[in-house]
């Protein structure tokens, strides 16, 4: 088991190097860099631009620049933001924290609602409630996330119950930690709900399909033939047997924690990684983009590892093989 973990983590580190090299090559191949736009400004002399180029190390060959970046990453800085004149990490960490503040509760709420509801709906298969449900989720699934976010904003504006955009109210921090937390929570309600509505339907449908398939199986019929109570059948017998594809899906949603809320953040002006990344890409702020992508990759590797460990823990058949 420990050897397996070590091997997986080793693979993960190799993957990070691969992703970063690929990113450097891609940026190299793309035309222009951060200074291209500076050069268009007639008030800045070519000498200043050349000086900046040397200062940022953009005149060095690619391998040297990559090595510099690796060294700076080892120090925990992940390179240097041209636009903000600070190490990329000081930009990325607080933004990543803000994004997780949205996506983690949204993920938890979606799964906590979707699993029990999906199991129940699977048990109703063929009845009117199931048809109503299918129609409802299809409609929700067809709604783009942006539309959901805009609808939420509209509700906030019309009712005035929720703050429109932003993360905290002005001066909330001065009223003590509890008031600040409450204010933060109040600001989180809309973006988190928009995220939950966006992801809930997909998870629900997976739970329903997966449990529904298990309910058709002969061992469920046998268990029913032994007179087991209905809810025990659904939750203690069908759900664990249907869990494997759901665990993989859960791993995937952990992997997407940093990127799932990009759109919502931009629309609702939440100071997460989304708006930062958008700006950085437009400005060709190389190291901020690379840092954000590397962070997303770390989550991808972690999410998949988590799913595999959960599978190992929950499925006796896999436990035997590993």
């Amino acid at each position: 088991m420990i050897r397996y973990l070590a091997r997986r983590i080793g693979h993960g580190i190799l993957m990070l190097f691969g992703v970063s090299i690929l990113l450097f090559l891609l940026f190299q191949a793309a035309p222009g860099d951060f200074l291209s736009e500076v050069r268009l400004n007639s008030q800045i002399s070519p000498e200043t631009v050349a000086q900046l180029r040397t200062q940022y190390g953009l005149d060095q060959p690619l391998p040297v620049r990559y090595w510099q970046w690796v060294k700076s990453s080892a120090r925990g800085e992940f390179g240097y933001s041209f636009a903000y004149n600070t190490p990329a990490s000081t930009l990325l960490w607080p933004r990543a924290r803000n994004t997780l503040l949205l996506s983690v509760p949204a993920l938890m709420i979606s799964w906590l609602i979707a699993v029990p509801l999906g199991v129940l709906v699977a048990g109703w298969k063929g009845r009117w409630a199931d048809r109503l449900f299918s129609g409802g989720t299809s409609t929700l699934l067809a709604l783009p996330d942006v539309l959901i976010a805009l609808l939420a904003l509209l509700i906030a504006l019309k009712t005035g119950m929720f703050p429109v955009g932003g993360m905290t109210s002005v001066g909330a921090q001065s009223q003590g930690p509890w008031a600040w937390l409450l204010d933060l929570g109040w600001h989180m309600v809309l973006p988190v709900s928009a995220l939950v509505v966006g992801s809930l339907t997909m998870i629900l449908r997976h739970v329903r399909t997966s449990v529904g398939e298990v309910l058709e199986s002969s061992y469920m019929r046998a268990a029913e033939g032994h007179g087991l109570p209905r809810y025990r059948l659904l939750f203690r017998y069908a759900l664990p047997a249907a869990a494997n594809p759901l665990i993989s899906l859960f791993g995937l949603s952990v992997a997407l924690l940093l990127s799932v809320s990009l759109l919502i953040e931009v629309v609702m002006s939440w100071p997460g990684i989304g708006p930062l990344l958008l700006e950085a890409i437009l400005a060709r702020d190389l190291f901020v983009v690379i840092g954000a992508v590397i962070l997303a990759t770390v989550f991808l590797i972690g999410g998949n590892l988590l799913a595999d460990l959960l599978l190992y823990a929950l499925d006796p058949r896999i436990r035997r093989q590993a």
Partner: peptide, 20 residues
């Protein structure tokens, strides 16, 4: 079911829940 009338089905591999 199970208490008064019990059932044994054809395929023993498929009559038991694989993960319990």
């Amino acid at each position: 079911r199970g208490g008064e009338v019990a059932l044994i089905s054809q395929e023993p591999a498929l009559a038991l829940n694989p993960v319990l």
